[in-house]
Every structure is written in C-alpha cells, then in structure tokens.
Design a protein around this nucleic acid. Structure first.
Length: 332
DNA sequence: AGCCAGGTAATCC
DNA sequence: GGATTACATGGC
C-alpha cells in the first residue's frame, strides 16, 4: 500500500440547524468506538477519511458558532460534484440537520436517562461509514471480541484499503466494493484471518456494486433485501438501518449493549434480548435507537475505548500507523 | 485446556 | 416453532 499525500481542495461551512444544544465533540467522536485508524480526534479537532466513488478525501472537522467547518483534502481530481456529495455526506453522517427535541422530551421523563442526557445533550448519532462500510464493521463484530474485531479491521484496511496523509495527520481509508471485487474468500481467510466471515465479505462487495448509493436511498426495504445475503441476520441489518440509514427507532441488539441496557433500564445484570428491546420501545417509542446510543456512550464517557489524542501525541500516532503498514508488507 | 466474544444458519425435537 | 449447536479465530 502506498502513502498518498492529499492537498487542500475546499472548505465547507455546514450549518447545524434546529433548536437546542449541539455537542460537537461527542457527535464526531464516540467514546465507545474502537480504534480503526480511519479517524483521529483531539479535544477540539477531528480528522476523518471518506470515499466518494474513486475519490479518497481527507477531512478536518472543527466547530464554531453553530457551524461545522470541514476542510477537504484530496489527491487532485476534485470536481464540483464532489463538493455537493461531500456536503451531503458529512451533513448526514453527523446528523447536522436532525431534530433531537422529540427524543429529549421522552428522555426527560425517564429517570435512568437523566444523567446521560445531562452529560451528552446535543449529541447526534455518528456514521461516517456508508452502507457498505458499516455493514463490514457489523460483520466483523459478529461473535467476536473487540480486540478481534480491531485486528480484522486493521488487516482489511492495511491490505485492501489506503493510507493517506493530510494536514499533518496520517489515516487509513476504506476500500470500495469495486476495489475488493477480485479478492478471493481464501485471501480474506488466510491473510486477513476473518474466519467464517471470509465467506460473507465477497457477497457484500457484490451486493453494493449492484446497488449504488443512489439506489439504496430509494430502496424502501433495504434491510430485508440485505438480509437475504447468507451471513447477514437481524443484528447486521439493524446496525445498517440505525447507523447508515439513521433510523432513530432501530438499534442492533448484541450481548454488549444488551447488558448495558439491562442494567440501565431493568436494573439487572443481563436480560433476554426481547425483554430489553420491548422495554426500550416502551420508554422511548420511535427513539429507542437514539436512547440506546445515549446509554452506551455514557457508559464509556469516563473510560473511552480510544481516548482523545493530545496534540503532542500526533507524531506517535503517525509513526504507529506507518509501522503497522510496513510490518504487514513483510509478512508472507 | 477450555471458554467466550458487540451473531448466524443449520439441525434437532 | 423454539431450543441447541457448529462455525473461525485468538486472548485469557
């Protein structure tokens, strides 16, 4: 994998609409999210890569006066259509035009939600991944420890993705479905150590090459269509719906958030998935997904999985990413 | 060694 | 149907 240097191409000023607070830091950086190398965060600035077709874009995100300022870096072929695409993508990824009032109203009536709401008021769902990318994440989370998921994610991005540098930060970028079209199941299994998930990934690539992102927006039962793929069940489909499609009523229940939610809303260490889901829907009708987000992020707020970087730590971050890439290159 | 982890599908009664 | 089990992998 070669390192691409990206140059500054544009600055987007993206208004945050709606009344009420906006929590930029916890919208863009989620305390519960594991490290992927796709994004980096300090206390007041974030960097993230996006794919827009063949384009690899690096984005620096900051916030001021109800406006997200997105500096765009690319490797040369930046066109007006890309500006529109990235404006929409970043606005949607972080819910900048979404209204939280209905959720906040419900939440204020649930004592268990008072602390999360006080700590995180104005936080939106974040999903900089597109439908394909978030589906890959959900696949890698299946029946696996976070350490295992992190390992597989890193391997896929090192071996099939991209490495970029812009604005002083080094980051990984996703592969597109087209870019892994010729990668075999054997490679995913033997090189990337995906286990049984190796069989499913080629089907994802085929599905998302057939269904372009514009088709997906028009598709009204994408979740059902996606579940016809072998290896995609209710969890993976729900993660796609709640994150990439931003359905506030939906959340993918797994053994991780099941325990967190059982403790928060039922007062027990664990409970059946159906019982947890039912209670979440009773307490937060139409907004159970948003509520789950608040409970989970509050759980990790004091001990984030991937803590914010100090500005002085960026050199070490860059060196770690470069070393990781070099190590992979020498492996047989 | 054996069990389990941010699931899923196949196979049993 | 609902309950049980194999599926890959690596960490403890």
């Amino acid at each position: 994998m070669t390192l691409r240097q990206l140059d500054h191409a544009d600055t987007l000023y993206l208004p945050v609409t709606g009344d009420g607070p906006f929590d930029f830091r916890h919208t863009v950086w989620k305390p519960s999210h594991y490290a992927t190398g796709l994004e980096a965060h300090t206390s007041d600035c974030s960097w993230r890569t996006f794919r827009a077709g063949d384009l690899v874009a690096g984005v620096r995100l900051a916030y001021e006066d109800r406006t997200v300022i997105a500096d765009i870096y690319t490797d040369g072929d930046y066109k007006p259509a890309h500006r529109d695409q990235l404006t929409r993508r970043i606005t949607d990824s972080y819910g900048l035009t979404e209204e939280l009032a209905a959720f906040t109203e419900l939440a204020s009536k649930v004592p268990a939600m008072h602390e999360p709401l006080a700590a995180l008021a104005g936080m939106r769902q974040s999903c900089p991944e597109d439908h394909f990318e978030i589906s890959v994440i959900a696949l890698l989370l299946q029946n696996m420890t976070v350490a295992g998921t992190t390992r597989m994610t890193r391997s896929l991005l090192v071996n099939h993705g991209h490495l970029v540098r812009f604005d002083g930060i080094m980051l990984r970028a996703w592969f597109t479905p087209a870019e892994i079209a010729d990668v075999t199941m054997e490679t995913f299994k033997e090189q990337d150590r995906l286990g049984y998930r190796a069989k499913t990934l080629p089907h994802f690539a085929a599905f998302f090459r057939e269904h372009t992102s514009d088709d997906l927006l028009a598709e009204d039962n994408l979740v059902d269509a996606f579940q016809t793929i072998k290896g995609v069940g209710p969890y993976t489909a729900a993660v796609m719906a709640s994150h990439a499609s931003r359905d506030p009523a939906v959340f993918g229940i797994d053994v991780w958030n099941r325990k967190i939610l059982a403790r928060r809303i039922l007062g027990v260490d664990d409970a059946a998935a159906e019982a947890v889901t039912r209670r979440m829907n009773e307490l937060f009708p139409g907004h159970a997904g948003t509520a789950a987000l608040y409970f989970v992020e509050h759980e990790y707020l004091d001990a984030p999985v991937a803590p914010l970087l100090e500005p002085a730590g960026i050199d070490a971050w860059n060196e770690a990413l470069a070393a990781d890439t070099a190590a992979s290159g020498t492996r047989s």
